[in-house]
Amino acid sequence: MEPRVTSQQNFVRPPSLAVWLLNLFALAERADSILGDLLEEFSLLASKSGVASARRWYWRQTIKTVPQLAGVGFRTAPWMTGAAVVGGFLLRKLVAPWVDPSIFAVLERYQVFEHHFSTYRFLASTGLDVGHFITFLCIGFIVAFAAREREMVATMSLGLIYGAIGVAGSVYIVTRTGDDATLWRLTWYFADSLAIVIAGAIVRTHRLAATSHSSNA
């Protein structure tokens, strides 16, 4: 985005994080007009009321606009977005049973238990969690690739589903067993959900960069 000159001859840009967030959720054909409108008003506000006030206004608009853009994204292609989410859910079902046995197979292959017990202990606990995190990240990539232009809506929906399942499962276990130590596992469930969303943001950002590069060429 080109910088804007205010009456004070300073280059003023809207907050980059807010612009990035809007770009993550806006459909390509809508992004141009929405970001252009916001920049036009931001520049006007910055020269009238100051940059700080304009930035606060931009953030307020962003926070209110992102959920609307997510809604439009889903409404304009509900079947494709839904199919990507369901596909991701089924893929996770298919892949998950192989994660732990694969990690243990590697540990046994290199006889980690016999030669490096502390490493074995680390890999057999935290290593498994990292394995699951990477699995969710890969599933997030696939879902984001499938949900063209709706990467964030699809990955956030899937992340919310897994987050909800994690919370419901943990609450169920705690109420049944009274063992509230299992609640700490929630952090890993949320990390898995976050991995899916991060993958969506990476794919979207990469696609935006590719589009911008091809339009500049």
Partner: peptide, 14 residues
Amino acid sequence: REVSIGAVYATLDR
């Protein structure tokens, strides 16, 4: 009333 650009575009799309 303060209106967001997102609400305007979402309604215009509809």
